[in-house]
Design a protein around this nucleic acid. Sequence first.
DNA 1: CTGATTGCAAATGCTTTGCACGCCA
DNA 2: TGGCGTGCAAAGCATTTGCAATCAG
Lengths: 166, 166
Amino acid sequence: MTLEIRERLNTFIKAKGLRHTPQRDAIVDVIFASDEHFTADDLWEKLRGTDARTSRATLYRTLSLLSEAGLLEEIDLGDGQTTYDPNFLEKPAHNHLVCVDCGKVIEFEDDHLEVLNDCVTRRLGFQPVKQSLRIEACCDEIRSSGQCPNLLDARLQGKRFPGKRR
Amino acid sequence: MTLEIRERLNTFIKAKGLRHTPQRDAIVDVIFASDEHFTADDLWEKLRGTDARTSRATLYRTLSLLSEAGLLEEIDLGDGQTTYDPNFLEKPAHNHLVCVDCGKVIEFEDDHLEVLNDCVTRRLGFQPVKQSLRIEACCDEIRSSGQCPNLLDARLQGKRFPGKRR
DNA sequence: CTGATTGCAAATGCTTTGCACGCCA
DNA sequence: TGGCGTGCAAAGCATTTGCAATCAG
């Protein structure tokens, strides 16, 4: 997996006349070891756990590079920071449901949705480029049982919730 | 129009034990004189044109207040700043099409979309709270004629484009 | 009077940039 | 060797906050 991504990155890098560096490899390795969404800061923390040391500047620059190369998807969950999705090569879905109770993000697909969005876009006189649906909702679980396993975790981690900057 | 909004705000303010101030009135007047989307900075500029002077802090605090009161809708167009929509009381649509060529934002409604979103949400085990669809697209006009009237305007105004922070 | 509100300036959080140095091709 | 890439610190931006003065009810 990581190897395939490295390959793709190298192709992109050569085509652009850019350079292959250990920092870039290290960042790619850490990112694609998982298929979870992450923020720049999440990545920074993970990187600290390894012996590969990069600066925040390089981290951000590499993140941009990977997006440009089409290996990473930038998504905006509305919490004041960019979230990255390493998983969209396999699952080209950009629909996110954000739980207003616990902040959990669920990615989902729906063909009907896709078709409908396309129709609407064309009707307005546009050519579709990218679509992202963001649904804020509260889970049945917290409404019935009064609590949600993710909630406590989120609070403990001091996570910011959707729509609010702090 | 503005008067109706002032009325609503006063009700909210009294209910919360808050206070009625000239600054708040001034901001409300400027906001609801139009039904266009705006950013905090747009508002700041408009305010400079009047004799009503407020600080940026008060501006932001009032914007939050109005959102809380349900008179203003905060929307995130993904350009690193919050956009406000004074128009959603009449048109409860939160679907936005952003033109990647010129940055123009089009608000639209679609019943099918609404229904479908609701279904999807429930299927995932959630109760819908708020939905916002953001479509990035390029307009037919610029593809056929090679240019778009909004494009030049946007460039001249130094606008930031969707998805990019600067 | 009393507590909500304001303005100012400083602080914040995320992200980008300038610059001098180092390293890949 | 040329110039891309890196790290560091400083800069940027939008937004928030602490605080003392001020004002509304």
